[in-house]
Amino acid sequence: MHIHKYEKIWLFFGIGSLFVFLTIIGVSAFAQGNQPPSCLTTIDPEKVDETPPFNKPGLVKTGDNEYQLNIVASAFAYTPNQIEIPKGAKVTINVTTKDVIHGFEMAGTNVNMMVEPGYVNSFTKTFNKTGQYTIVCNEYCGAGHHMMTAKVKVVNKQ
């Protein structure tokens, strides 16, 4: 098929840029570990309260400067909903839900996950700055959806 010379140039440039973008995000994901949250762990949504670690939700120290933050989402709250994290901590956040789908977004950060019944979702972030973050539910879950929130404080450790 005949294609105008300029259109060839344009498509070469356009498709080339698409592949550059794909390479950047591919390398970032597979080589540097910046995968989107895909925990693949399953859980019985009706037995969340009995299943570790969600039977005792909260922040747990797992190593030198390494932590696990286990959070249970349910209509329309996160447990716990006031969290303190020491500055510099590398925190793996695990979330699951007891009922419908919820979102888990730490506003203004890359922490953004879908929380679906039957699954644990997980994301790791290092908190290098002190400050306050708001966690909001960003997936519609019912009448109180916009009230569903939690607070994270990153504090200087003593």
């Binding site: 105008h4 010379k5 140039i9 344009w10 440039f13 840029s17 973008f21």
Partner: peptide, 26 residues
């Protein structure tokens, strides 16, 4: 099959402006 393709300089410029905008946003 005409030998002289129509002049599409403006088109080329326009799509490249568009392309740069896409790249800038991304």
């Amino acid at each position: 099959m005409t030998k002289e393709s129509p002049s599409l300089k403006g088109t080329l410029a326009s799509v490249f402006l568009l392309g740069f905008f896409l790249m800038f946003t991304w």
